[in-house]
Nucleic acid binder design. Structure first.
Lengths: 244, 244
DNA sequence: ACAATAGTGTCTGTGAGACATTATGCA
DNA sequence: TGCATAATGTCTCACAGACACTATTGT
């Protein structure tokens, strides 16, 4: 079954990034307008080919993060999302794309990269609306990335990564509400996160606000995983049978 | 920053499989003894290079599953685990390995494949013991695969995939106990799975056994995801602070 | 009858969800 | 004093966990 002259094929390797952040209480994703073919002019996730044959995958993801979003990735969450390699997804040949997920706190407008004529934050619901055309299979990658982020918020303390170095409990709640797309009771949420040891720890004095009682500030605690997980409100579409 | 003469590098693409099954109430993984260099003679996960440049990734995984384990993969669970591509992990050059996870019911001894001089089921705790040397970074891949399987059992009805077409509740419980490595109360487990609509449905009459009351048989129901998830017993090593 | 396993019933503590109440700032 | 938001308290219901008990087979 093995041909002595057979040699395994080689493929092109790309790294694409799903960079999520929170802006005005809505989940946003960083998209670039492609400046070169294929899909020139379409919106796409930032990314690119491996620089050289010995470049580390995570290093490549960090490099793209820096090149296309101007983010020094030192303390930034970066996690592999999956490999997307359907034949024909890229007209330039067989390309395997490794998708990485990044959770970023609120950031200024990014700088356009080398092969992107423009870049900017786009609300995720707009990016996934049927009217928006994304390059390659980036719609699928983005969908998977958001799903992963939703799941991570349940089982880890990653929500604090959306916030700045210090934050209020109300701000943390907004993260959950924006990513999950639900409304939560502030009082129950307050109790919940307070009772999870090591989730958040007090930091500094209260913050002054325009109106209302000044809230306390917190910093992320040492804990990274949540046992038991944060409970996401049950989707009402989870019924199987119903009786009149 | 872009050189007009620069062309992106190409890499070799491999597909490796973590095939898990249950034998005598213990979790086993399919390992092969490598017949060729590198790592000749070492134990490794079954897998191989892409056949040709246009082969679909999932198809390649199914092909390896068939070639190395003799499993017709029609109704078999196959899920992407991740990409492993550290430079230098393979002396033959830059190789990116896409790992796939398979959950299989109890199966006969597999047949040795073309590039594997021997193949067999190995208990996972033995495969991961410090004395066992696995090829490449397969120890890491296997660890990740088991972690994924443990998590899937919480949030999906995948446990039924470990069983045959029909099974008893006690058999289903053994799946959870073996994969999670814990003991569960049979009565509470019974109540729990019965109350989850669409998890398991009655199938056929009772099964005759050597001793004791014959158990009822069930088949997997229409539901695939579990909301809320199955609760895995809290690891006692989840303490942060303690007071005397 | 006894052994052995299947299946059911009961109690209790914990925690999520709903919502009232008090606290602390500013105009 | 009134307003707005933060923080705490109370109640109820559901469910996980512990375990007593009944049911159904074979010997």
């Amino acid at each position: 079954m093995i041909d002595d002259h057979w040699v395994p094929p080689k493929v092109l390797l790309a790294v694409d990034l799903v960079i999520l952040t929170l802006r005005v209480s809505r989940l946003h994703v960083l998209l670039v307008e492609r400046g070169i073919e294929p899909y020139q002019g379409s919106l796409a996730l930032p990314g690119g080919f491996l620089n050289h044959a010995e470049e580390d995958l995570l290093a490549a993801a960090h490099r793209e993060l820096s090149e296309e979003a101007g983010l020094t990735a030192d303390q930034l969450h970066l996690e592999q999302l999956g490999a997307y390699g359907t034949p024909g997804r890229d007209p330039r040949g067989r390309v395997i794309s490794l998708a990485y997920l990044t959770i970023a706190p609120r950031l200024p407008e990014p700088i356009a990269g080398t092969d992107a004529s423009d870049a900017g934050w786009v609300p995720t619901d707009l990016a996934l609306s049927p009217r928006t055309k994304l390059a390659f299979d980036h719609r699928q990658i983005l969908t998977d990335g958001i799903d992963r982020a939703r799941s991570k918020l349940e089982h880890s303390t990653l929500a604090t990564a959306f916030c700045g170095p210090t934050f209020t409990i109300a701000e943390l709640q907004q993260v959950y509400e924006a990513v999950w797309g639900v409304r939560l009771d502030p009082r129950n949420f307050y109790r919940k996160v307070q009772n999870v040891e090591g989730f958040i720890v007090p930091a500094g004095p209260t913050r002054k606000t325009d109106t209302g009682r000044p809230p306390r500030q917190f910093r992320q605690g040492p804990r990274t995983t949540l046992h038991p997980p944060m409970t996401r409100p049950t989707d009402p579409a989870d019924k199987e049978t119903a009786e009149p």
